[in-house]
Write a protein that binds this DNA or RNA. Structure first.
Length: 431
DNA sequence: ACGCTTCTAGAAACCACACTAGAAA
DNA sequence: CGTTTCTAGTGTGGTTTCTAGAAGC
């Protein structure tokens, strides 16, 4: 069975766009993603050359193939001979990089001469791959991964010593590998520096830190933290985070927040009662699923009150963000059982995460979690569970791609040739 | 307590057309 | 039985409109 570009249906697909969930040839990739500023921000990566349906995760130097997480696991995780293959993380890109730029980030990448230069690289310099690469140049002193000047994240050289067992050479290395998407920042170096500033020294290079980075960029209600600059980095699409999960991440109950406020805890530093954590819903989930209070307590660490939580985080904002993100993390791991490995890939979180981290949720114990609050949380959890089935999913990426570039009048599609007031492909109007 | 008005949030409708699935030839 | 042609139905996103519920008086 042959594979074809989701857009033109003719050429062989080369890249995978997570935002569109589409496999595209280079020509269509440029065509589609040069349509407007938003589409230019779509993060793309190579397509897995084995299954041709998932974004590539690593590049096997020996086999000279790009593989998704599943295929990499199948090919290297179970074979003792293949498991020693030298593999490198595959970088993502956004904007409209030229073939030269693509070759610079993927040295193994070769493009046909017919494919010309990008049509929009000049007009959208902000999205250029150079800046992108710059933004992904994480300080090696802060992370156990380095990036060479080709944009490839070379893991093998940096995971020596005690981490040898978790190198890419082994099947257990996946959680330690920073996915290529982690290296990709949609905008310029400003964002990169911001991310580093927010994440601080607490962030090691683990897939969950992508979530941390995203979680750090909370909605604009936290003006002192990320109102302007950081919000741009909060790309919900890239995290594949639906609203429900967003609420699970940040939907802290008022009562709990007030407790923290009274104790001079985290919320006071945010200056809001909506301080984001995921503990209440996490507990609600556990309770709603028939777990006893003992079970809830069993999965929590010895962090029994807001004061201890406060001390855990010290008084640094960086640590607070790290803390909240870690708490939010378990909700990403698909506790509902609805997610599959592909989903994990999409959201950038490793399938190994649930095993690698203790699934504790809350800095408070049952005693500090009144029954009324718990029932409220259970109610909210049930509501979210009820609405879970209605989340929108794009079934046909090609239709989405066409709808994205279709001309409209007041939001409605117009006939081809008719006057329109909105053309996604053009910044000007047709009046 | 009741009725009315105003406000708000969410759902539904609308549009063109490429695409799909099934029936018919 | 396999291939081709035809047709009805579906899905896609941005905007507007509708509706139910809450809040205020």
């Amino acid at each position: 069975m042959g594979y074809a570009c989701d857009f033109c249906g003719d050429q062989r697909p080369v890249v995978y766009c997570r935002s569109d969930a589409a496999c595209l040839c280079l020509s269509c990739d440029r065509n589609v993603h040069s349509a407007n500023a938003l589409s230019k921000r779509h993060s793309r990566t190579l397509l897995c050359e084995r299954c041709n349906s998932q974004p590539a995760f690593v590049r096997c130097a020996e086999e000279r193939v790009s593989l998704c997480q599943n295929c990499d696991w199948m090919g290297h995780g179970t074979s003792t001979s293949n498991s020693t293959h030298n593999r490198q993380a595959v970088n993502c890109y956004s904007g409209c990089p030229s073939s030269t730029e693509l070759s610079s980030i993927w040295p193994f990448f070769q493009q046909s001469p017919s494919a010309g230069q990008s049509t929009c690289e000049q007009e959208l310099g902000l999205m250029s791959i150079n800046e992108n690469m710059e933004s992904t140049s994480w300080d090696p002193t802060e992370n156990n991964i380095s990036q060479d000047n080709t944009g490839m994240a070379v893991v093998n050289e940096t995971c020596g010593g005690t981490n040898k067992g978790s190198c890419l050479g082994g099947s257990s290395s996946i959680p330690e590998l920073k996915p290529a998407r982690l290296l990709d920042q949609p905008s310029g170096s400003k964002d990169a520096s911001l991310s580093k500033r927010v994440l601080g020294g607490n962030c090691s290079f683990r897939p969950e830190n992508q979530l941390e980075a995203k979680s750090c960029c909370l909605p604009t209600k936290y003006p002192g933290l990320c109102e302007d600059d950081l919000y741009d980095d909060f790309n919900m699409d890239e995290v594949d985070l639906n609203l429900e999960k967003y609420e699970e991440l940040f939907g802290m109950t008022l009562n709990h927040s007030e407790q923290l406020l009274e104790n001079g805890g985290i919320a006071s530093l945010f200056g809001t009662k909506d301080m984001p954590t995921a503990d209440s819903d996490c507990q609600a989930a556990a309770a709603a699923e028939g777990s006893t209070v003992g079970v809830v307590n069993a999965i929590q660490p010895a962090c029994s009150n807001a004061a201890s939580a406060d001390s855990m985080m010290s008084n640094k904002t960086d640590s607070i963000l790290y803390f909240t993100a870690r708490h939010a993390h378990p909700t990403f791991s698909g506790q509902t059982g609805e997610s599959n490995a592909g989903d994990y890939q999409d959201c950038g979180a490793s399938t190994m995460l649930p095993m690698g981290e203790p699934p504790w949720c809350s800095p408070c114990t049952e005693s500090s979690f009144p029954s009324a609050t718990r029932s409220d949380a259970v109610l909210r959890y049930k509501e979210k569970k009820k609405t879970r089935m209605f989340e929108k999913r794009v079934r046909y990426a090609s239709r989405k791609a066409r709808a994205d570039v279709r001309k409209r009048v007041k939001g409605r599609f117009v006939k081809a040739g008719d006057a329109y007031d909105y053309d996604p492909l053009s910044p000007t109007r047709s009046y």
